[in-house]
Structures are given as C-alpha cells and as structure tokens.
C-alpha cells in the first residue's frame, strides 16, 4: 500500500478512535454526567453557527485580539528602535524589561479589571500589555544585531540617520520582529479569551464562562472546539504571514540540500 495513503488512514483512525472513546465514556460510564456525548456537542456546535450571538462574540474576540496586537506591534517596534538605537537607554531599560517580560498579563488582570471594568477596553489593554513587551525586547535585540560593517559602510557612503534606520537597521531587525509577531499573534487570542473568562470582557471567553456557570456542558465543549480551530487558524496565519513577508531575508532563504 502507498505510504502516504497508509499515513492518512492511520491519522483518520486516530481521530475516529479519540471521538469513539469520547462518545463511549460519555454515553457509558459517565452518562448523564458533565461530559456531553460527541453527538450532542456537534449538534450544539451546529446550533451555535446559526446563532447571531455566537457570531457577535466571535467578532468581538477577533477585533479585540487584532486591535491589541496591532497597537502592540506599532508601539513595540517604535519603542524597540528608540531603545535599541541609544546605548545608555538600552542599559537603563534592560533590567526593567527583563523583569517584566516573564510576567504574564493574567497577573495584572485584577488591577486592569478594577480600573476599566469588564469592558472591551479592559480586554484590549491586557492584550496590548501582553504583546508589547516581547515585541520591544525582540526589536531591541534585532536593532542591536545589525551588522557593524554594514552600518559603517552606510555611514561612509554618507547616508543620514533616518536612511540608515530605514535601509540597514530595520531590515536587519525584521526577522526578530517577525518572530515576536508570530509568537504574539496566538498569544493575543489566548489573552482575549482569558480576559473574557476571568475578567468578564466581551467575546468567546465570556461565553465559555457563562456556559460553565450555567452547567450547559454541550455548549461549553462546542465553544472549546471553536477556540481550538480558531487557535489553529491564528497559528497558521501568523506562520504563513511571517514566511511570506520575510522570504527575502537571508535567514529565511531556503538552503538547498542534496
């Protein structure tokens, strides 16, 4: 048998086995409990797709995640270039950035909810806060990584500061920024969901919280399935965008292997 075909069959078998196991546990040992059968979850999922409220929540989630990400990207790159361009500023901010970077936004969630309330702004701010730090740190690293010989060459050709920035520094920092964006895009979605789930901000996170609090288990599972697909879409899109936008850079060019 063809190897690819066999691989495909085994993959399909894995999915089918997982679903069958789920269905068996849900209808057999745990029937009537908190685990809904696959069939009920899928029916609920179909019901959601026909429901206007679901699409509003989905749109809210996407808008918050993307708006927060976009703001974080602009602010992060600008700040990163400024910090990276001046040696004293880089040293002055190093310890502060290194301290703040490993602290996830969920830590400041109580404060942000207290200040903004359970609103769109609250979720947006959390996404912004969570994404901007990694982008700043990566941009600083990228600016710092610019080849000194290229910089000297540009200087001896008499290029001005802005020109060097646009033609040497930024292009060489691009892969760093690209990596930061690829990591930040799925994170933006996760933070939006966290803000809704724990902070009551609008979107799918709040829908999940309501389904759980109301004991509506098929809906809860249907939302989690939707989030899984959405998460995959975010990861795929950011990977694709990174590869498309940065294909010209040396570190992305395909190495020919025999």
């Amino acid at each position: 048998m063809n190897r690819n075909l066999r691989q495909l069959l085994v993959s399909a078998g894995g999915i089918a086995a997982a679903l069958a196991l789920w269905q068996f546990i849900a209808t057999g040992p745990m029937a009537g409990g908190p685990l809904p059968p696959v069939s009920a979850t899928l029916a609920e999922l179909a019901g959601l797709l026909a429901d206007g409220g679901f699409w509003t929540a989905l749109a809210d989630t996407l808008v918050i995640a993307l708006a927060g990400l976009a703001a974080a990207a602009v602010a992060g790159v600008v700040l990163g270039v400024l910090i990276g361009s001046f040696e004293p500023v880089r040293y002055a901010t190093l310890a502060v950035l290194e301290f703040l970077k490993p602290i996830p936004p969920i830590v400041i969630l109580p404060l942000v909810v207290l200040v903004f309330g359970p609103t769109t702004e609250m979720s947006w701010f959390l996404v912004f806060f969570g994404c901007v730090l990694p982008i700043i740190v990566q941009t600083v690293a990228g600016v710092h990584d610019a080849d000194p010989v290229t910089l000297d060459t540009a200087r001896s050709y008499g290029l001005g500061r802005t020109e060097i920035l646009a033609r040497v520094t930024l292009p060489s920092a691009m892969p760093f920024i690209g990596t930061a964006m690829r990591v930040s895009a799925p994170a933006a979605l996760v933070i939006t969901v966290v803000a809704g789930l724990l902070g009551g901000g609008p979107g799918l996170g709040r829908s999940i919280y309501q389904a759980q609090a109301g004991g509506d288990y098929p809906t809860l599972y249907a939302y989690v399935v939707v989030l899984g697909l959405l998460g995959l879409a975010f990861q795929g899109a950011s990977q694709l965008a990174e590869r498309r936008l940065l294909h010209w850079h040396a570190s992305y060019r395909e190495v020919l292997t025999p």
């Binding site: 993959s11 894995g14 999940i208 759980q212 989030l227 995959l232 975010f234 990861q235």
Partner: peptide, 28 residues
C-alpha cells in the same frame, strides 16, 4: 504509527487556549 495517529490530535489540542480547558476540568 504513533506519530501518524496522534499528530492531528496534538495539533488540535495545541490550538486551544490552555486557560479555556480549565472550565472543562472544573465541570469534570
């Protein structure tokens, strides 16, 4: 064989925001 069987499942679970699993475990 294990890789073929688990790959799609792993990738699906990876897409779910980890915190969204907490309500499920609370219910279970």
């Amino acid at each position: 064989v294990v890789r073929w069987a688990l790959d799609p499942l792993i990738h699906f679970f990876r897409g779910i925001p980890p915190v969204a699993l907490v309500p499920i475990f609370i219910s279970l």
